[in-house]
Amino acid sequence: MNDPQTIAPPPAPLTLHAADGFRLGGVVWRHRTHAVDGAPRPLAIVNAATSVRCRYYFRFAGWLHRQGWDVVVYDYRGIGESRPERLAGLYATWLDWGERDFEAVLRHAREAFAGQPIDVVAHSIGGFVTGLAPSGALIRRVFTVGAQYAHWRDYAPRSRLPMLLKWHAVMPALATLCGYVPAKRLGWMEDTPRGVALAWSRSRARFEDTYVRAPIARSAEERAALVKRLANCAAPILAVSVTDDPFGTIPAIERLLGYFAGAPRTHLRIAPAQIGVEEIGHFAFFHSRFETRLWPLALRWLRTGSLGPQTPGIVISARNINVDAPEHAAQ
């Protein structure tokens, strides 16, 4: 998709408000024209990983913009551009990030980018967040990387014990002591709302069972509605995982995909050696060094909803969709 423009406007700050009035901040890359090659120009929204600032995805967003998309990246409440003055008073959970924050971005996209197809690129918890928005029917296609909701039994066996100690013992203790997780000074991630820390540390095999105790409790009716909402999502999903990601194991990815019962969904698993590198892990997909090796996977899926014949990796599962399986199996 080649844009006829020779000069594109620079990215611009974005400010919007969720339905409850919470102020959200982000950045938008937008072309001067709303159509390309005679068709409406697509818009991509990037849903970040837990407590990762939206600026982490700037290089990927800029690249996707150069491929012809308008792009919106934003921070969930409590993070980066959406952090309030006093984080200790914020009790947001992952559910708020989806039901309120991503929902606000979708509603903004419907109005500000009227008539343009809306795609989502989601990293880690961002894949879960994608299914929580009431306006999910607006989404055309979804591309996820390492998307899961941190149920401890799904962690890679070699990493499970230290991850349990860090995320399910130390993190909630800090949240209780400080009113939030001062993760930045520990070099973990961005400072994190208490509710997110509690949801993570309590994460159950069925995500809805995580939200049965105060202060993050939801009623039985609310939990059932959330499950139904994910099942009603219809946008085709390509879920990419890598073999050296301790969060994005096969059980973890498949557990989340199981909730998207109404969507065509494909799970593609890649080994680092298949693209000539030693490691990728949970975060590196969005590093610029993978611009030519991994980013085209996202581009092709968003553009066509299909996998190319030379796609690295192996298809772990493909439900309600026809894809050409890659030639090589991950080890």
Rank of each mutant, 00 (worst) to 15 (best):
R218Y: 07
S159E: 14
A61H: 01
R53G: 13
E222T: 08
L95G: 05
P215W: 04
N320G: 14
G21M: 05
E221V: 15
R289A: 12
S317V: 05
L268W: 12
A261Y: 04
G62E: 15
A225L: 09
A325E: 07
V277W: 09
P117Y: 04
T33P: 00
L198P: 03
E85M: 11
V28A: 13
A330E: 09
V277Q: 06
A35Q: 13
T33H: 10
P326V: 03
R30E: 14
D70M: 05
G146T: 01
V129N: 10
V181L: 03
R202G: 02
L16M: 07
H108E: 11
P11A: 14
P42D: 07
T311I: 09
L165S: 01
V71K: 02
A263Y: 05
G146C: 03
V323P: 02
W152M: 13
D20H: 11
F102H: 15
P251E: 13
A173Q: 04
A88M: 01
P9T: 03
I253L: 15
M189C: 08
I118L: 14
A156W: 01
I321Q: 10
Q331R: 10
D245V: 12
A284K: 15
S201T: 10
G305Y: 11
A114K: 11
P264C: 08
I118N: 11
E291N: 07
R319E: 14
V212Q: 14
T33G: 00
A261E: 14
S241P: 04
W200E: 06
A8F: 14
N322Y: 00
T144G: 01
I316D: 05
P182S: 04
P42G: 04
A35W: 06
T130L: 01
E190W: 04
I321M: 08
L95S: 09
C233D: 03
D154Y: 08
V73D: 01
R229E: 10
I314A: 15
L90Y: 07
T144P: 01
G179T: 04
R110V: 11
G62W: 12
T292V: 11
R229Q: 15
P193W: 05
Y74W: 08
I45G: 09
A112R: 15
Y259L: 06
T33L: 05
A231R: 13
A263K: 05
D75A: 03
Y259H: 14
A112W: 00
